[in-house]
Amino acid sequence: MISHLYIVGVSALVATAVQASIIQNKPRDGVIALDMQFDSNSQDLIKRQVGEHDYSFPGTSLPKLVLPVGSNKDEVQLFVDTGSWLTQVPDVATNCAKCLLPDGKLGLYDANKSTTAVKTGQSLKSTFGSTAYFYGEGVIDDIWFDPDFKIPGTLFNDVHDIGSSWPYGILGLAKPPKGSENENIVWNAYKAGLINKPIFAITQRNESATSLQLFLGGYSKSQLIEDYTWTSINNENFAGHIDFVDINGTKVIINETVTFDTGNYQAGVTQEIFDALLASFPDDPNNARGSNKIDYNLIKDKTMTVSIYGKSYNVPLIAFIEPDCKSQHCNIWIHVSAWNWGSGFNRFLNLALNYDNGSYIGIAGWKPSNTNDIVSF
């Protein structure tokens, strides 16, 4: 999710408050591991704008988690987004009736009742589309991971006005601009001594792809085919240069840098690449060419070769269709739009981002596993 972020009224209060709130919590082997929901069977469709194109996707198919915020540990549900850096927390001031937790209860933060909240006076506006926006105020507060474990002093957008498209907040994981490191939970966890290195990793936990895990400072070895390959991305967003995609022996030259965006689901390409990719799919007697549909049985056991920064990875071809579809008419989720490849594709890779000394993306081949062997970077 690439955002347009506007910040007004920056104050020296930010740095002072963050420094004062750092607490040395007990490290847990240098890794924080979080389960993320991936409810890909929902029929709830919402609109999203990317570039000049609108398209629909199941909003709940994006990875998300529930986090308590502030001294009262108000629970909020946040999309985990590698395409933006600022955390967006819906406040009670939004009167958002759709901001629900998995149990159906309302999930809103109350900055006025949190004794650890520090209001910065910043006006924050993040816009992702005409009906997808977060307007609020910069607040510094603690983000909790269990009753006795927190990341202290993260600056986030205490949202007072939320667009109708997004019934949840956002946990932004892209590297923030220089000087705004306190807006990122990974940096804050590292500075507080909670993780060994300022790196996060996202790993698919099982073959069904209905659950993901987010790791701060570590990863799960059991899903890796080999060690991570690290490439400098020079402080850019969470991005990778895709050389080509080979489907059924047909090599489609991509030669573009794409954002690996967990705040999106589809794969965005140009019209030329769109036509070439769809032409490489197996012939399907049940779906006409141009219908953007495919019989699941024709691709369920097929893989494609994807070259990223000159290294090849095997990815299941179902990465390009709607989640959980096993019918004869599954939607192919490749669209003509900005170069932004979402969780439908990148859930079949092990991806990590190292914030230190610039930015480095780590990529490793994925293998299905129902076990975890968590280690620190």
Score class of each variant (00 low, 15 high):
I7T: 09
L13I: 12
V18I: 14
G30L: 05
S40H: 12
N41R: 14
Q43G: 13
Y55I: 02
Y55W: 10
G59Y: 10
S61D: 08
P63H: 05
K64G: 12
Q77I: 01
D81V: 05
D81F: 01
D81W: 01
L86S: 08
T87E: 07
D91V: 03
C96G: 04
L100D: 04
K105Y: 06
D110T: 08
K119P: 00
Q122D: 12
K125G: 06
T131K: 11
V139G: 00
D141Q: 06
D142W: 02
W144T: 03
I151G: 02
T154F: 00
L155V: 05
N157A: 14
V159D: 10
I170E: 07
L171H: 03
L171Q: 07
K178I: 13
W187Y: 14
K191M: 05
G193S: 07
F200N: 07
I202P: 00
I202N: 00
N206L: 05
A209I: 08
L214S: 10
K221Y: 05
Q223K: 15
D227V: 03
N235W: 02
H241I: 01
N248V: 02
I253C: 09
E256A: 06
E256N: 14
D261W: 00
G263D: 01
Y265W: 09
Q266A: 15
Q266I: 04
G290M: 10
K300W: 04
Y313S: 09
L317V: 13
E322D: 13
K326D: 08
H329D: 15
S343D: 13
Y355F: 10
I361R: 09
S369A: 10
D373S: 11
